[in-house]
Structure formats: C-alpha cells, structure tokens
Write a protein that binds this DNA or RNA. Structure first.
Length: 424
RNA sequence: GGAGAUGUGUCAGAGCGGUCGAAUGAGCACGCUUGGAAAGCGUGUAAUGGUGAAAGCCAUUCGAGAGUUCGAAUCUCUCCAUCUCCGCCA
C-alpha cells in the first residue's frame, strides 16, 4: 500500500511511475479528492466530539452536585446527531479510500527498466550451456508418462485438469529436491519453517493477493474467510503481521516448503501439458523481513542463493530484471530466473525474487523500532528457492537419455539413497 | 464438539460507569550519587489520525466489532484468541 501523504506530496512522479506499470492513474486523482474530504470530515466531526466530551464532563459535575443538567443534555443530543452524521460520512470516505489504495500496485524502484511487456525485460546474466542432443529431446510429460511416473490421467480422475499424480522415481525426485533446496537455503542462513497452508483474508491482503486477485485463489467454503495459499510467501510474511520487531532481530530470513494452490483463471490454453502450470505445485520459498537499509543487499543474497541451486544442479539458466510493465503487484524490483527447457527450446521461469520495500509491511502493519526508538515499516522480500515442479521439468528434460531414462544430478544422489538414474 | 475461566501499556499487575492513556511494580533511558559499579534518589517512558511553522492542542485506541448511556477499560451482545476439564481423533 502506498502512503497517502506521499501521493499528496509526490503526485506527479508517482503518476509517472504507475503509468510505467500500465496502471490507470485516474485512481490517484480520485484518492486525493477523497483525502481532502477525509480531512475535512475528520476535523468537523472531531471538533464536535471534543465539544461533546467537554459538555459531558460538565454534566457529570452538575449531576454530582444534584443540579439540573437537562439543557446541557439537549445540547449534547443535537451535537451528537450532527457528529454521527459526519462520522458516518467519514467512515464511507475512509473505506472508499482504503479500497482504492489496496488496489494500487507498488512503485517500481529507480533501477527497474521501463517497459510495457515481458519483451522489455532485461537479461542480466546467463549461466551454463544448453546441452546439444544427438537425438530429438522429448518433453518432460512424455518422459514421465513413458516411465510410468507422471500420471496426468489419474490427476484428472481424482480432481480434474491441471492435477497430477507423481509416482515412484519422480515422486522421490520431487521429495529429494525439496530437501536439497531447504538444506541449501538453510546453509545460507534462512531458518526452515513449516507454516499453515490455509490463510485468512487479512493475511492475503497483507501480501497483496487480495482484494485485487481473488480470482486467482482457491477460497474455502468455511465459516471463516479462508483461502488455500498461492505461495508460502503469504504465510511467512504474515508471521510478523501487526508485530513490532526489535531492529536487533534483523534481518529475519525464513525458508519454507509448501504446496501452492492457484486457480490459474485466465490461463486456459497456456501450458496445458505437463507440470509447468498446475493448480497445485510444490515450492520452496524464501522470505526476508529487514530494515530498509538492508533490503537491497538481502535481495542480492536471495538471488545468488537461488542461482546457486541451479548451478549445483547444473541446469543452464538466465536471470532477467523485470521491466515496469511485467513486475508483480507488490514488487518494487524483481529478478526472474529462467531455466533452460530443451523441448521448448527456450528458458522458462523457475524463480521470481522480489523486493517489496514497505509495500507489504504497510498493509500488514509490520514495524520495527529503529535506533532512535521510533517505529518504522520494515522491508519485506520474497523469492522462490525454487519452484520444485518446474525443477523436475528441467531435470527430466536436460538429463534425459536416448533410451527414455533420466540421469540424476550428482548433488541429489545422497538425497536419493545413492540412486543415480531414473529408469523404468 | 461440550463445560468453565481469562484477554489492560515492553513485561507483571490494579482499576466504584465520569477528573483513566490508565494506579503500582519491573524493565528501559537520562540525571544525581560513586574512584568505578551495585544499591539508593530524581525525571522520563504508547500508537494512529487531525490541526499547527513549532511548542502544543484535539480525536481515537484497555483482544476485535456492535450496542446501552449525556459519559464505557468498567454494563450488554457477537466474534476471535489463550488456558483448564471432558469427548474425539493423526
């Protein structure tokens, strides 16, 4: 959430910034207008309330002395009437303003390239050389199905399209990757966590998934407004919701494995085959909560940590700095990692690492006490480390053999009881 | 799921419906004291919003929300969380 005071004082630059995100900036004008009303109504109703409070004290005095207070009470009654009307208007205005604010994305950092679409993302790094095959590489879904270890039909039978059943060797590979990734992140100082996989509305507002992106979430049919989490970024970040943190605890570094649930509304026809786009997938996620002065450095740390995972797995990848038009709602600066997918002959997203600045902590009210003893909003960051299903895609495809078997990256051998390849 | 209890500031813990943003401890900060420290003494110790150049003033906040009342931490209702007992389970 943006600071209204900032919108007031830096109106033009914020307008440009959000324009670069393809955002309809007329909302900003509306917010300023509401803010004027808000201030007026606040002053008006508070003045009346002050008067009422004063009279009430006088009434108390009179009553104590057994004197007649009827005329004062009449005065209060009529003041109260007006005050309540104004207070109600104020509530309306405030609600409207908050709703608008909750729908405004974060401001891109000055280092973010300006651009309209993903075409204008900037490649910052390329690592590894895509393998040249002496046969035509098969896509991962076919590899998995031929091995009898990825069962999309069973997934559809149980639940529906975009669900899968992992079996035997590939199920083990998925589990091994989770463990490997958590161990790696742990070695970089990220505390391993297990969080709920269901979160309530306030948490999802905190991270920016609500109110704007409700159609991308699975909502439970429960008494409480509960949702399946789309990523454990939600739960990890909200661990500190409404909390005041001592600066000495910073930087907080968390890592968690969780399944992620996404409705994928609006993506019909995209990546219909295979593991790339499922309603449920596994991910290891990193989250950091830190002070503003630390956040850039932590961002870098998270990026290199995830890069190292790909390097240890010997998977070719590239890093992109997302342009203003392609960045996520809550982010002010995002690096995507894309892994090489031979069957598609291109790089596909496998991680997204974002610095959200104080955008989320304003929504979730995550604050810390700085050296002067004053309260300040913390910075939050999140990043994949990594998407596990897509890592399986990359391993199956990049390590496939002509006979349909798949070699296992050496770093995973200890996680698989010494198993070095997957074969039927 | 059933029964009961509780929810106050950084923590512990008071609080007759009016002068309570809230006693008292502890903690913390500063000062005095001391060769230095401890003890002792003194002072200070919330957030958010409005207004103001500032000092300040005003409003709101005692788990959350609604209500009763001229006036609510204090009364009523709903919800949430925690604890104890019972039931049911992984």
């Amino acid at each position: 959430m943006l600071d209204v005071k900032k919108i007031e004082s830096d109106f033009e630059s914020i307008k440009t910034s959000l324009g670069n995100r393809n955002f309809d900036t007329s909302l900003l004008t509306e917010i300023l207008e509401l803010n004027k009303q808000r201030k007026m109504l606040t002053t008006a109703s508070e003045t009346k309330k002050a008067e009422i409070n004063k009279l009430s004290r006088e009434i108390g005095e009179l009553k104590k002395n057994k004197q007649d207070a009827a005329s004062l009470m009449n005065q209060v009654a009529s003041l109260k009437n007006e005050m309540e009307k104004e207070a109600k208007e104020l509530d309306d205005v405030q609600l409207k303003q908050t709703n608008l604010l909750l729908n405004i994305p974060n401001l891109p950092d000055s280092s973010v390239p300006v651009g309209k679409t993903e075409e204008e993302n900037v490649e910052e790094k390329r690592w590894g050389i895509p393998r040249s095959f002496d046969f035509t590489p098969v896509d991962h879904a076919d590899i998995g199905e031929k091995l009898g270890m990825l069962d999309f039909e069973a997934g559809a039978r149980i639940t529906g399209a975009r669900f899968v059943v992992y079996k035997a060797g590939i199920a083990k590979l998925e589990r091994a990757l989770i463990n490997f990734m958590l161990d790696h992140q742990g070695s970089k100082g990220f505390m391993e966590m297990i969080t709920p996989f269901i979160a309530h509305e306030r948490s999802l507002i905190g991270t920016g998934n609500l109110p704007k992106f409700e159609d991308q979430l699975f909502k439970l049919n429960s008494e409480q407004p509960w949702y399946l989490i789309p990523t454990s970024e939600v739960t990890l970040t909200n661990i500190k919701r409404e909390q005041i943190i001592e600066e000495s605890e910073f930087p907080i570094l968390y890592a968690a494995y969780s399944p992620c649930f996404r409705s994928e509304a609006g993506s019909s026809g995209k990546d219909v085959k295979g593991l790339i786009r499922l309603h449920q997938f596994n991910k290891v996620e990193m989250v950091s909560i830190c002070s503003p002065s630390q956040s850039q450095e932590i961002h870098q740390k998270m990026i290199s940590s995830s890069c190292e995972i790909l390097e240890k797995l010997n998977l070719p990848y590239r890093a992109l700095r997302l342009c203003t038009g392609d960045m996520g709602f809550a982010s002010q600066n995002t690096i995507d990692l894309e892994v090489w997918v031979p069957s598609q002959n291109k790089y596909r997203e496998i991680a997204s690492i974002s610095n959200c600045g104080e955008f989320q902590s304003r929504r979730a009210n995550i604050r810390f006490r700085n050296k002067e003893g004053k309260l300040e909003f913390a910075h939050t960051l999140n990043g994949s480390g990594l998407a596990v299903g897509r890592t399986v895609v990359a391993i199956l495809e990049n390590y496939q053999q002509k006979d349909g078997s798949v070699q296992i990256p050496e770093v995973l051998w200890p996680y698989l009881g010494g198993m070095k390849e997957i074969r039927k």
